[in-house]
């Protein structure tokens, strides 16, 4: 009996060790490109193109980071600011519109609800690519070609359906009793949204914000079609343009890649704490 217990304990330890080895492999595979990105960004230029690649830099340098933030070498800061402005506006407006829309879809009975719900669903499955030709024409004829406004509006539409679905699933979990009690206390529907619904679904609102920000921040297609001059470029098309010129330096590109990826990764890291389960993230488009 004692022997059996001892051996099963040993078994468990072995299994545990094997599990952590497996975990290390999964994480290494998943994160390897990020590792290479970072290591290359702190290597010297000659080491980055050495015939025998090194994992860790022989000499560590932060020159590439200094370079990308030097406006005389790179318009990186301009692109970064453009991306930040567009993404923040998209995220704020998406959150506002989707709170209203999701409240109606979740709590109100009205004519055409099912139709609207399925239309949102169809739009959710849409790709911006399918509408790129008419959107390009509409934007041009409105005189909005090569403006950040055009990009911002197109991106808001892109994020809205998923944002509404995500928030609706949060609002659905709020019991009707709470609202009825609030109504008896004399609150109207709009006050209920602001004082009852929003505070109760703050984690949903944060995840919608992060989602919309990410869609805008990562967008390449709309930016590449709607923007034509460098001073309006967002990071994805700006970096792509820089990479197409022959004078790119790997270290700089990797430094730029890291700094470009950081805002969304940090935002996700923070919002993880607020997201329950993961059902909501599962609804994220991309």
């Amino acid at each position: 009996m004692q022997m059996a217990m001892a051996s099963s304990k040993k078994d468990r330890t072995t299994r545990k060790i094997l599990f952590y080895i497996g975990l290390a492999f999964v994480l290494a595979g998943s994160l390897f490109p990020f590792f290479i990105m970072f290591m290359t960004s702190v290597k010297s230029t000659s080491e980055a193109i050495a015939q025998t690649p090194t994992l860790l830099p022989k000499i560590w340098t932060i020159d590439h980071y200094a370079d990308i933030f030097n406006p005389e070498l790179f318009p990186y800061v301009t692109y970064f600011i453009n991306s930040m402005v567009v993404s923040l506006i998209v995220a704020v407006i998406s959150v506002a519109f989707s709170i209203f829309g999701a409240y109606a879809m979740s709590k109100l009975k009205f004519f055409g609800r099912t139709t609207i719900n399925s239309s949102f669903y169809v739009v959710y499955m849409f790709s911006g690519l399918l509408l790129i030709v008419p959107l390009f024409k509409i934007i041009s004829s409105l005189g909005l070609y090569n403006t950040k406004t055009a990009l911002t509006i197109a991106l808001i539409v892109q994020t809205l359906p998923a944002a509404i679905f995500m928030l609706k699933s949060y609002f659905d979990t709020i019991p009707a009793d709470i609202e009825e009690a609030a109504m008896i206390d004399g609150l109207n529907r709009v006050q209920i949204i602001f004082y009852i619904i929003m505070p109760l679904s703050i984690s949903g609102i944060i995840s919608v914000f992060v989602y919309a920000f990410m869609i805008a921040w990562n967008d390449f297609l709309f930016a590449s079609v709607f923007l034509s001059s460098s001073e309006n470029f967002t990071l994805p098309i700006g970096l792509n343009a820089l990479f197409s010129t022959p004078d790119y330096v790997w270290g700089r590109m990797m430094a730029a890649s890291i700094v470009t990826a950081l805002p969304v990764i940090i935002m996700y890291g923070i919002s993880e704490r607020f997201i329950k389960g993961g059902a909501v993230e599962g609804g994220v488009k991309g």
Binding site: P33, F34, I36, M37, M214, W217, N218, F220, L235, P236, L239, N240, F243, M253, M254, A256, S257, I258, T260, A261, V264, I265, Y268
Partner: peptide
Amino acid sequence: VAPTISLVFA
């Protein structure tokens, strides 16, 4: 979640 452009460069 990271932007395509960063991943593609890597």
